[in-house]
Structure formats: structure tokens, C-alpha cells
């Protein structure tokens, strides 16, 4: 498995002028620093930064800003959540209760708030959440832990892998309209695509 980018000099945004304006606006907005949140509380925001950093193994704030913004937008979303298992609270509730539960478990187990734990300690708690092994009392009562873990992971991953800096790191061509691709077969790369460096 790779530990660093195969494309250290590639920047997907170099081609942004060739994108359609609508796509460009959407993607470039993800680069903005997060100045304020609309729905998350200060405490939730702090915990959330550490949770998503641990889930994705990346603590660069300029990227986490967008991931946290995606959570904040999700909390304000009215249209629905596509599917929800019976017995699972609506997603805004689920996210809020889980963040507060993680804070409580951190204090109970380590005597510190979640963001102040070591990465290993954070991973331990998140691993327990993933397996549904946090004692189901107090705030965790009737809170389906595996579902909570999946919700946090899914929102984190979809936002993180929508960030153009991450596209550059993994060598994704990004939006390709109106240009498209000409060279698509094995070993073929259009001139503007990421060029592998080893």
C-alpha cells in the first residue's frame, strides 16, 4: 500500500479554467476556510474535527474544514436522508448524540476531552463504536452504535474525497467537461492528467 502520493506535482485545479462554470463554482467553494458553522455547537465542532481526522487519518485543517462544513450542512438538510434503519434516530439526532457520547466516553475512560486524546486512544474509542462495544448506558442508551459509526464515516469519506486537494493527491482527473477524455486505454494518459512519478 502506498504511503505517499504517486503524483506529488499534480494539481487538479490547474485545469479549473477548462471546467464548466457551474462545476467550478461547486468545487472551488470547497477550498474556503470554515469561518462559522450554522448548526453545530462549539463543543460538537471541536469533537467533530478530531473524529473526522481520526477516521480519515489526516489532520490538515484546510481539508477538515470542508468535511466539518459538510456535516454542518447535513444537520440543516430538510429533504431527507434517503434511508434510515428502523430503530435509528433521524440523522441530525444520531450525529449530535454520537458526538456528545464520544466526548463522554473520552472523559470516562481517559479523563480528557476527545480532541485531547492521543490518536491511538481516539482509534480505540472509534473501534469500540464500530463494533458496538461502548457500554450502552447514559447517553449511549438506545443509541445504535454501529449505525452511528457508519453515519460518521460515510459523511466524512464523501466530503474528504470530494476535496480537490485530495483528488490531486490520488491522481483523479476531476471534472472533465466540456473536455472529456481522448486517451482512455491501458497506459494512456491525456496530457493534462496526473503524470505518475515514482
Amino acid at each position: 500500500m502506498a504511503t505517499k502520493s504517486h503524483y506529488p506535482h499534480y494539481n487538479v485545479l490547474d485545469a479549473a479554467e477548462d471546467w464548466d462554470p457551474h462545476t467550478r463554482k461547486i468545487v472551488e467553494a470547497r477550498l474556503l476556510p470554515l469561518e462559522s458553522v450554522e448548526h453545530l455547537t462549539t463543543a460538537e465542532t471541536k469533537t467533530l474535527y478530531s473524529v473526522v481526522a481520526a477516521l480519515i487519518d489526516d489532520d490538515r485543517s484546510e481539508i477538515l474544514d470542508y468535511v466539518v462544513k459538510h456535516f454542518d450542512d447535513t444537520l440543516g438538510k430538510r429533504i431527507g436522508e434517503s434511508q434510515r434503519k428502523t430503530g435509528v434516530p433521524p440523522q441530525a439526532d444520531l450525529i449530535r448524540r454520537t458526538l456528545s457520547g464520544l466526548g463522554k466516553t473520552a472523559r470516562d475512560n481517559y479523563g480528557k476531552p476527545f480532541p485531547e486524546l492521543t490518536v491511538d486512544e481516539q482509534h480505540t474509542i472509534l473501534g469500540q463504536l464500530e463494533r458496538g462495544q461502548i457500554p450502552a448506558d447514559g447517553i449511549w442508551m438506545n443509541l445504535p452504535q454501529k449505525e452511528a459509526f457508519t453515519k460518521l464515516l460515510s459523511l466524512t469519506v464523501e466530503a474528504y474525497y470530494s476535496h480537490p486537494k485530495i483528488w490531486s493527491e490520488i491522481g483523479h482527473g476531476g471534472p472533465a467537461y466540456p473536455r472529456g477524455y481522448v486517451r482512455t486505454g491501458p497506459g494512456l494518459v491525456d496530457p493534462w492528467e496526473a503524470q505518475r512519478e515514482e
Binding site: L153, S154, V157, Y160
Partner: peptide, 29 residues
Amino acid sequence: ARPVAMATGISVGAGTWGPQLRRAMLDFN
């Protein structure tokens, strides 16, 4: 697949997260 579909698949679908996910996705291509 594009990055969100693959990363969501191998994380939410196959239980990979943290450093394993990040490293697997560095090999996206």
C-alpha cells in the same frame, strides 16, 4: 468508479477506515 464511490465502498461497505483507507485510496488509480 470515481473517488467518492470507491472510498465509500471500501470504507462503509468493507469496513476500512483510518490509515488503511487513506493508503488504499492513494492507490486509487
